[in-house]
Design a protein around this nucleic acid. Structure first.
Lengths: 346, 346
DNA sequence: ATGCAAGCTGACAGCGCTGTCACATATTTT
DNA sequence: AAAATATGTGACAGCGCTGTCAGCTTGCAT
């Protein structure tokens, strides 16, 4: 039960501890027979290298840090699982670090943590990906890091992103194709650039289809269900009423659906609603929500992959990776109501 | 920028490294003046102890492990935040370890991880709290651990729990007080004992109120939205139809609401629905869901607290802590429909 | 055969801390 | 006042690894 050390293995295999170290670390220049002897000894003793000793001696920790300040539990869990699925098999552990995006001392806190834990590399997710103070500090201390869905300073680090704008463009086009002309939009939190940029796709689709962009139909949300409700109330007071509302995330779209139900507005007959993210709530709502699914786990995996490559010294030259989101049309969207209905409700 | 070591601090403060170590570790027997000198030096150099060195020398890792196999993202995030809020300030880090509850090799995998990472203590959450194979193995290797909401082998470790049964008893009584007599129940996943025990409260309330327990009105769910839908379809076919359905978690209750909407059954006028957990979806549904809120974060905090006390050698004698859940009545529950309506729909 | 590079292996220092124990200095007891 | 005890402090040996460097084998060209 007393766990075996490298010395025990070395003795059993009849080699020096350095050779054991070589085998464990898959270093070259070990004769196959020697390697086999060592591996056999390792297996027999059920040897596990002591990570603390390894870190201390090797001046690295085999630990990655994950920074996030996203309030969506599903998003965070998806990211965590994606990261773990890649880094665990490669011998790296993960330290999670939820942050308060608005905290004054955030940057210092992060830098301190990195130093204390001797973190080898970091993964930043929105909205931290766009926190320039943090990003610059990381550059400064010269620690490898990757970002998920950054929108600013993209050349500061490797990153992965999705075609959010394109997806919201597509969704808007779908609505237009269904006959909608007055399409409301609820913007994402301005601090959360990846979300708030979704507005661009909406705008582009309108212009492309010669539909005037009306300020009247655009509301500023804050990513929460409640902000979605508030924006929906405003939008549904406009005359004539929009026949569709596209929210920059599912929570806000859920707010729209709630307000519509409360006001007796039938979905999708009188109002189409679309969201973004495909959170679990999207298919639990009634009617189920048309939305856009992002490959969150894949992004996390890809990002971790890039980070580990960087740690191995392979000089990844600021690679960027683009993964595609996909439209999921459910029951909350449908053809625009006939003209007279709209006038009637006017 | 080159990070300061304990030697630097000792030199600047004019003491030995051992004294610095004493101050850092808050050991007794250091004169206040000496302590102040050291603290000043630490501040000036912005010294952070190297955790690897500390672990190696002290034969502990200052890392806690969190084991979970719960598919609910909100639950997991709540637990993580609760644990972190307690262990971080006390200098402990957290390694998260999502598990597959049904994996054959789970126990070995966990034990391996503990050995390799030199984890100091573990926190188990449902359904792992009730995994006897894991629990016994942990006892065997004699590592401190605490459990959240265990229902079996409670004397195997310290634990925290809630009054789930009482809460579901209360909810059932509420429904009865509203005039409901035919109350359907959807049980939780049988592997997930903490959830499946909620049935006991329902049963007790019926008996207490002299309402016969009808097998007809009890369905076996599996904690998922989809299983809730399936059970709801079955329950709503019963004649006479139940006037209320109580599901052992919110996801299944959401399934009930979905099926009711699809069948044109008005909630709460024709059917009351109650859930359990107060997940975010509960108040995003229409109508918003009456449910029971568990103090998940507090449980996590309390559990972590117990664990850290144990690690400090304070021999916590299998303490158990009970935290209370609270009923949250929203719009999905209401008075039972008048007799004639029920007969009419029959 | 001879020389030389490339392949393989081990001795040893040291990463930055904590535990042990010895010693020095105060405080109390007799 | 001396002895006994409590309180502070430091020297030093590791903890279990990795990095460096030196040395010993090989293979292969000459």
């Amino acid at each position: 039960m007393a766990k075996a050390t490298i010395d025990d293995v070395a003795e059993l295999a009849g080699v020096s501890i350095k050779t054991v170290s070589r085998v464990v670390n898959k270093e070259p220049n070990v004769r196959p027979e020697t390697r086999d002897k060592v591996l056999a000894a390792i297996a027999e003793l059920d040897y596990r290298p002591n990570l603390s000793a390894r870190s201390l001696a090797g001046n690295r920790s085999y630990v990655l840090g994950l920074l996030y300040g996203n309030p969506s539990a599903n998003y965070v869990i998806d990211i965590q699982e994606g990261v773990l699925s890649i880094c665990r098999p490669q011998g790296y552990d993960l330290l999670i670090h939820p942050c308060n995006h608005r905290d004054e001392n955030l940057t210092k806190e992060i830098i301190d943590m990195i130093h204390q834990k001797r973190i080898d590399g970091l993964i930043l997710t929105p909205p931290l990906s766009d926190n320039l103070s943090v990003v610059n500090a990381l550059k400064n201390i010269n620690i490898p890091f990757v970002r998920v869905a950054p929108t600013r300073n993209k050349d500061a680090s490797p990153y992965v992103e999705t075609n959010d704008e394109e997806a919201s463009y597509d969704m808007t086009c779908q609505l237009i194709a269904m006959g909608h002309k007055r399409i409301g939009f609820i913007c994402g939190h301005p601090d959360h650039l990846a979300v708030s940029h979704r507005y661009e796709g909406y705008k582009a689709a309108l212009i492309e289809n010669n539909i005037p962009l009306s300020e009247d139909l655009v509301e500023q949300g804050f990513n929460s269900f409640e902000s979605g409700e508030a924006c929906a109330r405003n939008l549904l007071e406009r005359k004539p009423r929009p026949t569709a509302i596209f929210a920059a995330n599912d929570d806000m779209a859920a707010g729209v659906i709630m307000v519509a139900h409360q006001g007796g507005i039938k979905i999708p007959d009188e109002l189409s609603v679309a969201g973004f993210d495909d959170t679990p709530v999207a298919h639990q709502l009634w009617p189920s929500l048309s939305t856009i699914r992002q490959p969150i786990q894949q992004m996390a995996k890809k990002a971790t992959d890039l980070l580990l490559k960087q740690l191995r010294g392979k000089d990844v030259q600021l690679p960027a990776s683009m993964l595609s989101s996909s439209l999921i049309m459910r029951d909350s969207t449908g053809p625009a109501p006939k003209k007279k209905t709209v006038i009637g409700s006017n």
